[in-house]
Design a binder for these strands. Structure first.
Lengths: 151, 151
DNA sequence: ATCCTTGCAAAGCATTTGCAGTCAC
DNA sequence: GTGACTGCAAATGCTTTGCAAGGAT
């Protein structure tokens, strides 16, 4: 996919939300679209600074929130209090390595039937979305002798 | 369930982990066991302070981490950067209200078969656990006219 | 020309840590 | 008595905000 096409996607999304196109936002968006590493804000900052040495961390945070607001990125939150951002917009799930913290994308999905099979004791909960996250060890961190099923 | 029984559970778990029984830990544990509201650390602090006016927030944090380490509580993390703690130790999932932030327990579970159906493109991911969380609107916050399925 | 966005620095918030006194065992 | 725990306060780390200068439409 060409960066030109990506830029147009960004321009359209920004315009639809009444916001302006800037090179900072383009750089953040471009980096997110180019990786599947689910970077933290700081990692985005370090990467984008290679192209825009003057960009500030605050701008990266603002740009990321703008992208999330436009539906061009998803924010993931983890227990180690470092949010990560995902540039993929299609529905998918994640697997997080307990050892190294890496976040992997998962193919496949659980069936809607399974989701509907869950009940709130109080009832009346209206489901608009869900998030599934596996935890375990990635290929590089598997403890020797483990025999748990692999995904 | 009597508080005496709960206290013994706590004593056993602490001893098994080489840690000591204190009234602060007992109060935190007792409060977690008595509620299904998935409180934040600050909420635990405010509640426990009714019984132990001198307890400090730092001790609450330390106690909560101790309980998590002993397997007596589970830590939940959300995007609004406020960790919540769950005193239930049996496997279950959560539904979070987008509007009021309340976290509800869900009955039921997705089948292991569904989990095994997910794949990492890189392969070799060893699954040790997973977390499923629905998002939507609780009974008190359902927008009028909504027709989404309820759980 | 308008008003949104940037970059800087300072503030904010949840959480953690260092340390002396205290307590459980 | 010994080592772990508490409480206080300061520190830490991530994220947000206020504001003047600069940039997009």
């Amino acid at each position: 996919m060409s960066s030109t096409k990506n830029e147009q996607v960004l321009r359209d999304a920004l315009e639809a939300n009444g916001q302006r196109f800037t090179e900072q936002r383009a750089a953040v968006f471009g980096f997110l679209a180019s990786t599947d590493t689910h970077p933290t804000a700081d990692e985005v900052f370090l990467a984008v600074r290679r192209d825009l040495p003057a960009i500030s961390l605050a701008t990266v945070y603002k740009s990321l929130e703008t992208l999330v607001g436009c539906g061009l990125a998803v924010k993931l939150t983890y227990a180690d209090q470092s949010a990560r951002y995902d540039g993929r917009t299609d529905p998918h799930h994640h697997a997080r390595c307990i050892s190294c913290g890496r976040v992997l994308d998962l193919l496949g999905d659980v069936s809607r039937h399974e989701i509907d099979g869950l009940h709130s004791p109080e009832g009346g909960f209206t489901v608009t979305g869900y998030r599934l996250e596996l935890s375990g060890y990635c290929a590089d961190c598997v403890p020797a002798g483990s025999d748990a099923p692999a995904a």
